[in-house]
């Protein structure tokens, strides 16, 4: 797997500028209600950041973009931590224990191919419109990805490392701690990064389908009010947070996968 774009690329700010230029040009030829200009969106984002009374009017619990960003980010953080730990552990276990693989593989392979969002209505029935519904959906999605990455990474691990450790005197516990886990960390972190990127979108969509808070809820009410400026302002803020989270994941990869080619690209 290549992790391009981990390091600083001088073309990236240029690409962002090109995007802004195109946006500006397009907005000049369209009505602001269809496509507001970039500058007006930035002003709207800063105006609504701490306090947005219009959101209270539409029934959003916390009438500020900041509060809803925090709500969404918290949900993503919980879901990603729980889902990633569970998925990685079960995936590693499945690679070495036949029974675990036999039990879990059918579920995970199905979940890995079907769009997971179809489970959303079901989760709403179970958990209602609160946090639990969105968090469990995202956690399940993250767990599926990490399971597939962990299982594959552990299965593809050259047995020579385990053999070598055994002849050096390692026992079963050391095989897991010193060989299986560190050897699969670069792939696990790669999967983590992909899952994290997808988690933001899935969290927002699940909030769209039924929640009282969160950026998804904000998007839903603003769409109802055909407020293109507000929608873009919310999306851009969500994008900034997601980019920051991705940068943290990339830093994690650089730190814990320095020994592998994937980690080395960052050095």
């Amino acid at each position: 797997m290549t992790l391009r774009g981990l390091g600083f690329d001088p073309l990236r700010p240029l690409g962002a500028l090109l995007f802004l230029g195109l946006w500006q040009a397009a907005s000049a030829s369209m009505a602001p209600i269809m496509l507001p200009s970039p500058w007006s969106v930035v002003k709207r984002a800063s105006a609504d950041f701490w306090s947005a009374p219009s959101l209270a009017y539409y029934g959003v619990e916390d009438p500020s973009l900041f509060g809803n960003l925090v709500y969404t980010s918290e949900n993503v953080a919980i879901a990603v931590l729980v889902g990633a730990s569970l998925g990685a552990l079960v995936g590693l276990a499945a690679s070495r224990v036949w029974l675990v693989r036999a039990l879990v593989n059918p579920i995970m392979l199905t979940a890995g191919t079907a769009p997971i969002i179809i489970a959303a209505p079901f989760l709403l029935i179970w958990f209602g419109v609160g946090r639990a519904s969105a968090v469990s959906l995202v956690a399940f999605y993250v767990a599926t990805i990490l399971y597939l990455f962990a299982e594959r990474a552990a299965r593809n691990l050259d047995p020579i490392y385990e053999h070598s450790a055994l002849t050096l005197g390692a026992g079963p516990r050391r095989l897991i701690r010193d060989i299986l886990i560190p050897a699969t960390v670069p792939e696990l972190l790669g999967g983590f990064r992909i899952a994290l990127a997808g988690a933001w979108g899935l969290e927002a969509v699940s909030e769209l389908l039924g929640a009282q808070s969160g950026i998804g809820k904000v998007l839903e009410v603003l769409a109802g009010a055909t407020d293109a400026q507000g929608i873009l302002a919310s999306l851009i803020l969500l994008g900034v947070v997601a980019l920051a989270a991705d940068a943290c994941a990339a830093a994690l990869i650089a730190r814990f996968a320095a020994w592998s080619a994937a980690g080395a690209q960052r050095l």
Binding site: T167, I179, A183, W259, S260
Partner: peptide
């Protein structure tokens, strides 16, 4: 102790 034909040095250490 065993030295293998292929590389068995742990790349993560």
């Amino acid at each position: 102790g065993m030295v293998f034909q292929r590389d068995s040095v742990f790349p993560w250490m």
